[in-house]
């Protein structure tokens, strides 16, 4: 990671504020993600984690601050153009297209980016190698998949645009622990083999911090703590707030 940190970060969020109407969800957030890193963003319900992810994508727009991606200011860029800069996201609640087949769902991921037929094929192969279960279900409608398979599909769909930065919003939400572990394993594989940069938003702090190189803790629209994954896992306040008492890891 030391080599990556020497250069400019792939994504830099500086002093970003965002609001829904009068309710301010982000109150000046700074995060940095270096190329090749897995960064976890953890926090309680309503802390603003998902809002931050959506704001990076331009919806809602940042009211103040800047978002820089690969040295380019993307603060005011329309959402659909941000996706073409090879930032992909798997939104909260998976949001696959239930009446469309698995193959069509995956195609949708590649449709907005200008990629050749060969690249598309290669992308499909890559997704199927990562999640063989999807290949088995390729003609099935998305809505008929199980929760874990839908999450695989949502990640696979995001990967079809051959992103450099993948943002995942609560990939383990509502999944059985075994399936959640498979998803996290897949993310680790993507990072190690392809050098994919990942921002992962999670409530499941234990899993996410074990997976991530670095983590940020968000409370009420502000970043309150940051450090490497293992550092954060050791912090008593993290243990108290996110690990013990509530959900087990």
């Amino acid at each position: 990671m030391s080599a990556a940190q020497a250069t400019t970060p792939l994504l830099a969020v500086r002093g970003v504020r965002a609001a829904y109407g009068k309710i301010e969800a982000l109150k000046g957030v700074d995060i940095e993600i270096n190329a090749g890193e897995i960064v976890a963003l953890i926090g309680a319900n309503g802390a603003g984690k998902s809002t931050l992810m959506m704001t990076i994508f331009g919806r809602p727009r940042a009211r103040a601050g800047t978002i820089e991606y690969d040295g380019q200011d993307i603060t005011g860029v329309p959402t659909h153009e941000i996706a073409r800069l090879r930032i992909a996201q798997s939104p909260e609640g998976r949001r696959i297209f239930p009446r469309m087949s698995v193959a069509e769902n995956l195609q949708m991921g590649a449709d907005a980016t200008e990629c050749s037929e060969a690249e598309r094929e290669a992308g499909l192969e890559r997704v199927f190698a990562l999640f063989p279960r999807l290949k088995e279900r390729v003609a099935q409608r998305g809505g008929t998949l199980s929760g874990g398979e839908q999450q695989m599909l949502a990640i696979g769909r995001a990967l079809m645009s051959r992103p450099r930065l993948l943002m995942l919003d609560e990939p383990s939400l509502g999944l059985a622990p075994l399936i959640a572990r498979q998803i996290f394993d897949a993310i680790r594989t993507l990072n190690r083999q392809d050098g994919l940069t990942v921002l992962i938003v999670e409530q499941n702090a234990n899993h996410a911090l074990k997976l991530a190189h670095r983590g940020y803790v968000m409370v009420n629209g502000l970043i309150t703590l940051t450090g490497t994954g293992s550092e954060l896992l050791q912090r008593p306040e993290i243990r108290a707030a996110y690990l013990e008492g509530g959900r087990h890891g």
């Binding site: 959402t79 659909h80 992909a88 297209f97 009446r99 469309m100 195609q107 949708m108 449709d111 907005a112």
Partner: peptide, 24 residues
């Protein structure tokens, strides 16, 4: 074609379409 697929995806989930870079 991609445009027809985008129509159907739009019917299914507009937010997801945006997230995939579809110009809604």
């Amino acid at each position: 074609l991609p445009i027809g697929r985008a129509w159907e995806a739009l019917r299914e989930d507009e937010v997801a379409c945006r997230a995939l870079g579809i110009n809604v």
